[in-house]
């Protein structure tokens, strides 16, 4: 199908983009890679009357190594992360995940910020950024504010972003040199959205031992202290996490998420990146 008619704007500054969104009175939408919004518009699931293209905002493509963290412009593409063209604070986790999002043609255009703003529970970055407790920097008419990834997504396709706000950047803290991670994405076909996601990070330097259960009905469920699943598998701890994530024991969804969680926990003992 073809998209419904809309007006297109290609602002040159963040302030201009925000002003255009504000003027559109809720009928406008930002667009970055258009790898999620394009399909939605062609299917007429989304019919914005104004499209505010963020492609020409150089600031959104900048990355900065801050030492203790890396600041990613929201417009950084999955392919740039996959190819290591931007600094990696995650000991290989982000490139590993990026290379398994969709297909190369989609990764060449799809962006980190677009993926987070889209907030599909089955998408990869919403889960990874919650796992890494990333900080999102949002720009709006009153300046900037920062939100933790775990508090950014309110539910499926719903976030704290106001209609006239955009994601400007994402700050990811650097993992310690001895940190371990694992990421298990269950899908039937390479490049497809996940049916279940589970991931762990265990960083002795910072003491972070977090896990997530993702591709659920809403935002990923964060297990803030996952020691009970890291230091040996605990059925009761897994069951309570899965149920807290909204999964119903006995259902197909519960089963696949349980398997994903178990496999992610097992993979934590393998070298980072020697995953699947």
């Amino acid at each position: 199908m073809k998209a419904a008619a809309f007006d297109y704007h290609g602002p040159a500054t963040v302030a201009e983009a925000v002003a255009l969104l504000r003027e559109s009175d809720g009928m406008g939408k930002a667009v970055a890679g258009s790898q999620s919004l394009g399909p939605m518009m062609n299917l007429r699931l989304a019919q914005p009357t104004q499209l505010v293209d963020l492609r020409f905002l150089g600031e959104l493509r900048e990355c900065r190594d801050e030492g203790a963290a890396v600041l990613f412009g929201a417009g950084v593409t999955h392919a740039a992360i996959e190819d290591g063209k931007v600094p990696d604070p995650s000991l290989g986790l982000m490139p590993h995940v990026a290379g398994r999002i969709a297909y190369r043609a989609v990764r060449n255009r799809g962006t980190l910020g677009g993926s987070l703003a889209h907030a599909d529970p089955a998408a990869d970055w919403v889960n990874v950024m919650a796992l890494l407790d990333a900080e999102l920097i949002l720009a709006g008419p009153d300046g900037e504010r920062s939100v933790r990834a775990g508090e950014f997504m309110l539910g499926a396709f719903t976030t704290v972003l106001a209609e006239d706000e955009i994601i400007k950047a994402v700050r990811v803290r650097r993992l310690g040199p001895a940190a371990r991670w694992s990421y298990y994405k269950f899908n039937r076909k390479t490049g497809e959205f996940a049916e279940a996601i589970a991931a762990f990070v265990d960083d002795p330097e910072s003491g972070v031992r977090r896990a997530i259960v993702g591709a659920v009905d809403g935002a990923p469920y964060v297990i803030e202290d996952a020691s009970a699943l890291i230091d040996g598998w605990s059925d009761p701890a897994a069951a309570s996490a899965l149920q807290a994530a909204g999964l119903v024991p006995g259902s197909y969804e519960y089963q696949v998420h349980r398997v994903a969680l178990r496999r992610a926990a097992e993979r934590l003992s393998r070298p980072n990146g020697a995953q699947q």
Binding site: P39, N42, A105
Partner: peptide, 27 residues
């Protein structure tokens, strides 16, 4: 498909493969 899935429309934009069905010409 016009939704980025089938790959039939893949061509090169700025030297890299791109889905031409979900990128608007104006962009």
């Amino acid at each position: 498909c016009e939704q980025g899935v089938c790959g039939a429309c893949t061509l090169m934009v700025d030297g890299v493969p791109t889905r031409s069905c979900i990128v608007y010409a104006v962009a």
